[in-house]
Amino acid sequence: MTKEMEAEFSQNEIKTFAKPVRFVKEASLDGAEIHSITGYLKEKKEMDLIVAGVDIGSTMTKIVLMNTNIITSVIGPTGAEHRQLANKVMEQALVQAGLSFEDVAYVLATGYGRINVPFADRQVTEITCHARGIQSLFPTARTIIEIGGQDSKAIKLEGGKVLNFAMNDQCAAGTGRFLEVIADALELSLSEMSQISRKAKKKEEISNICTVFAEQEIISRLSEGVVVEDIVAGLFAAISRQVFKLAERLKIEKDVVITGGGAKSTGLIKAFEDKLGFTPLVPEEPLLTGAMGAAILGREQVLKSLEKGKLIRRREQRLEKVTFYE
């Protein structure tokens, strides 16, 4: 869903702004420079603590900077070819917030590209991060469905914690990628697809889960004279069925929240609503819940450590290109 998202390159309003505090440098044990954030918090307030959540997806990098509130958030391309643009998105976020990298006390990375992030202090899976992000937005959520670019996930929450989760297998069916391939085949944008699907008289059955097969199937339906709106409605039904199956494995319980890039498609949300029999909750900016969760988790960890009087040690993090492990 690159084109559309790039166009939407989010310019969220800056809600709060806090003057950052510089780190206190400490001598390191093994020669490398280590920062400690303990020092400044002794004097300054909690709200000065700035944490970044970085969600590096297969196509988009999402960043949330926060203290007690969200300072700013940015969505930018991961870099389709070399996937080396994540650091640029970080730079953009910092510019937007009027901060320098040193102002950020802690960076927590998540998402598909979370592993080798030179500017991150720690990495946590997108499952835990989405769960935390959603939980802060919708405290009543029990089931989360995340439709990402490369895979879809279902997460079950209990007492705010991840109880169980399921992910689709190595296949693009029921993912953003699937939607994108089909949108290309139909020469429609994603929002056009949602609009068109509202006009459907019936849902054309799309049975193939294989992206390649489904594309063929759709083209041959079109040549048989089936109208586009029925095909698109059938397609949304097929994707929701595929993802619903994952969630059903964990036993769906209310409230259900749908997030991830796929949740931006109102047509798909409608298809889920039909399948569920009730209205699912959708965050205002579904792309950001992972990054937001990452920021919250990072902040919580820093605060918890400080409470215990533990020293949080940071290695010298560098705002450099992300290398993927695959």
Partner: peptide, 9 residues
């Protein structure tokens, strides 16, 4: 299982 089958193919 029709998901393993493609008419056009």
């Amino acid at each position: 299982d029709s998901r393993f089958y493609s008419d056009s193919e």
